[in-house]
């Protein structure tokens, strides 16, 4: 079910502003790929281009190719909505739907797409997804309470449960732990290692240790200069990046010797 992603010569624009330039990389199925780099170098922009969330912003567009298991994501006959059903996303700030209960939040993807499902099947899906997100034991007695009433870490796991409930092939996570405390962060890292059995995961993080702990491969993005587009400077197995990177810039960034 997990899928392979190949990106070639990808340029990403906001109107006339080129935010990201010339990205080439391949993401293996059933692995965690981490993206690191200074703020504003285009990590979020690149991540959002992988499930065409990028297009939600007026004037935003891409040039180049993103291929998932042989299918061109930006082909003229591809519906971005279908793309997003296959490639889910978790955001930096937890964003459960405030009008919905915990239960409804989990099944939101199914309900909003008006897929008809028996109540029992839904119940089953909720339990499976919440267990998958390591949240089941904490909320099983209050499934009908508003999702916004949970703690930050719980909300983020609820959002993960919501994302995996639609059975995507790939899960994109944009700094999913940056708004959370260390304990919740660990809980989510554990969760990621479990989830990679079933999904391809791409995660943006500012936390070097996190990248080193959870990922197989790491990509380092950097800016050539102010007003210049961001570039993928180095993409290698995580071990190599953190012990013996090819690029001087990567080493400087990782060791904190960065301007």
């Amino acid at each position: 079910m997990a899928k392979r992603i190949d990106v070639s010569d990808l340029d990403i624009y906001y109107g006339n502003f080129k935010a990201v330039e010339g990205v080439n990389l391949s993401i293996e199925p059933r692995s965690i790929t981490a993206l690191i780099g200074p703020s504003g170098c285009g990590k979020s922009t690149f991540l959002r281009s992988l499930n065409r969330m990028h297009e939600v912003i007026p004037g935003a567009r891409v040039e180049g190719k993103v291929v998932i298991d042989g299918q061109d994501l930006y082909g003229s006959d591809v519906d971005p909505v279908d793309v997003r059903r296959q490639i889910g996303m978790v955001f930096q700030r937890p964003n459960p739907f405030p009008t919905m209960s915990i239960y409804d939040n989990v099944v939101a993807g199914v309900r909003l797409n008006s897929t008809k499902m028996k109540r029992a099947a839904l119940d089953d899906l909720v339990e499976r997804s919440l267990r998958g997100a390591n949240l089941w034991t904490e909320v099983k007695d209050r499934l009908d309470r508003p999702g916004a009433g949970l703690s930050g870490g719980q909300q983020q796991r609820l959002c993960i449960a919501r994302a995996i409930a639609v059975e995507p092939a790939v899960l994109l996570m944009d700094e999913p732990c940056s708004a959370l405390d260390p304990i919740s962060t660990l809980a989510i890292e554990d969760l990621m290692t479990e989830l990679k059995e079933r999904f391809t995961i791409v995660i943006v993080t500012h936390n070097m240790q996190q990248a080193a702990r959870v990922s197989e491969s790491t990509g380092f993005f950097n800016l050539a200069g102010v007003g210049q587009p961001g570039r993928l400077v180095e993409f290698n197995p995580t071990e190599k990046i953190f012990s013996n990177p090819d690029q001087k810039a990567t080493e400087d960034y990782i060791s904190g010797r960065f301007g």
Binding site: D82, R84, G88, F91, N113, V166
Partner: peptide
């Protein structure tokens, strides 16, 4: 963020 959360679940804009 709520709109984006919904789009990311593969929900069309009108829904």
């Amino acid at each position: 963020e709520l709109r984006e959360a919904s789009y990311a679940l593969g929900v069309p804009k009108w829904r």
